Computed example of a mutant assay.
Amino acid sequence: MPFINIKTPEGALNRAQKEEIVHRATNLLVEYFSEAARPHTMVLIEEVKDGGYGRADEVFILPEAYRAKD
């Protein structure tokens, strides 16, 4: 089963954006593995809470300007 795991800051994507990512990611794998892969493709979008990720000793908080608008 093809599997894609996407981690994103909590609140960065709205429902429609998540649905689009699932659809487009599935289509991408179907291009490589054939249409037979579609019913078996899993796309998992994990939302990481603010302060739960960082880089080079900097803990990230999602700025308000980048939060999803519903």
Rank of each mutant, 00 (worst) to 15 (best):
K69S: 12
A16I: 02
S34V: 08
L44F: 08
I21Q: 02
G52Q: 09
A36G: 05
I61R: 11
N5C: 09
R55I: 12
Y66E: 11
Y53N: 10
L44E: 03
N14W: 02
L62F: 04
A37H: 00
I4N: 04
P2C: 08
Y53D: 04
K18Q: 09
A25K: 03
E64V: 06
L28C: 13
L29Q: 06
G54M: 05
T41D: 05
M42D: 01
N5E: 13
L62S: 04
A68K: 02
A68V: 03
A12M: 14
V43N: 08
L29I: 09
R24V: 12
E31N: 12
A37E: 01
K7L: 01
E58S: 09
E20P: 05
R55L: 14
T8E: 03
N14R: 01
A37K: 08
L44G: 06
N5L: 12
A37F: 02
P2N: 11
R55V: 14
V59I: 15
R67W: 11
R38Q: 10
N14G: 01
K7A: 11
V30Q: 01
I6D: 04
M42I: 13
G54V: 06
R15I: 08
T8M: 10
L62V: 09
R24A: 09
A37N: 00
A12Q: 12
V59P: 07
I21V: 13
